[in-house]
């Protein structure tokens, strides 16, 4: 167990690198913070896209237009068949009159145009509501393929292109975020590793003496790990801070954009601390041998 004098020493040494190399450490935090800001922006964009996709999916539905001249019985028979399709949670019948009323609502001031029509040209239809799990392109297409073969059905409509594009872009963004995340990860580890190497090189004599008098590797490495973790913490906080400032400045122009929740901010900074620890660890490998270079 560590004595209080040892704890005091380790705490002091953890900040010693910052104190002795203010410029290098400052530049490191700045570079790492900027890289992490890019990652944070991409993560935020992916998060918002995912939310948009989720919102869009709640609006995914299928409209099944029926042949004209169907008897009321034939039409009523369709309802249980539609409900029994996997993925369909509910079915609503839309009569031609209801459809016309709905359509006139979408025309707004131009609704008068409908008066020029001889009759109601809109066919009856069923509006299919989908379960949450079924709100994806593959299931929607499967439902369409099944219903399309029925004799009573004239046409099936859903917002295929829109869903398709949204899913495609979300996937691309996630992929880009992952690639950028990987690059940022490697870059951050490299930058922190180099800074800690500088600290270790400057502390070579201290490390050598520590080894000679029997200090354990754990004792020797603690201040350097703490330094890396602290750099990661500051760089992560800087990135989050800059993002928050940007959010405030652009407020109003970014309608509906969701910012990170406190838990997500803590998670992001925790990830940056982990980056710092990995960077320090990789810097220390060669110093962790038993050799003291007598």
């Amino acid at each position: 167990m560590l004595r209080s004098a040892q704890l005091q020493y380790l705490l002091k040494e953890s900040f010693a690198g910052f104190h002795r190399r203010k410029l290098t450490t400052g530049v490191t935090i700045l570079i790492m913070g900027s890289s992490l800001l890019v990652l944070a922006v991409l993560t935020l964009a992916t998060l918002n896209l995912a939310l948009a996709l989720e919102r869009a999916r709640t609006g995914i539905d299928i409209r099944v237009f029926l042949q004209e001249g169907l008897t009321q019985t034939a039409r009523a028979d369709l309802q249980p068949r539609l409900v029994s399709i996997p993925g369909v949670s509910g079915v609503t019948y839309i009569s031609p009159e209801m459809a016309l009323h709905e359509f006139s609502g979408t025309l707004g001031q131009d609704a008068d145009l409908l008066e020029m029509l001889d009759g109601n040209p809109l066919p009856p239809s069923y509006h299919l509501q989908l379960t949450v799990e079924a709100r994806n392109l593959d299931t929607v297409r499967a439902i369409r393929d099944e219903v399309a073969g029925w004799a009573e059905v004239e046409e099936i409509v859903f917002h295929q292109d829109w869903i398709d594009a949204l899913e495609r872009w979300t996937f691309r963004f996630q992929l880009a975020s992952m690639i950028v995340g990987l690059i940022v990860f490697v870059a951050a580890v490299f930058v922190i590793s180099n800074t800690v190497k500088l600290t270790m090189a400057a502390s070579a004599r201290v490390i050598q003496i520590q080894k000679l008098v029997g200090a354990t590797n754990a004792f020797i490495r603690t201040p350097f790990l703490a330094e890396g973790a602290l750099q990661g913490f500051l760089a992560g906080s800087l990135a989050m801070g800059l993002l928050a400032v940007a959010g405030v400045l652009l407020e109003g122009r970014l309608g509906g954009v969701v910012f990170f929740a406190p838990g997500q901010i803590a998670g992001f900074i925790g990830f940056c601390v982990l980056l710092g620890l990995i960077g320090s660890w990789s810097a220390m490998r060669k110093y962790l041998t038993l050799r003291s270079d007598l």
């Binding site: 004595r3 004098a5 003496i209 008098v213 029997g214 200090a215």
Partner: peptide, 24 residues
Amino acid sequence: FRLLEDRDVFDNVAFAQLVVGIKS
């Protein structure tokens, strides 16, 4: 000699005790 140049005589000697966990 291999002394720590930025520490005084006392601290140089005390350092050997500190790292092995002797009470203050």
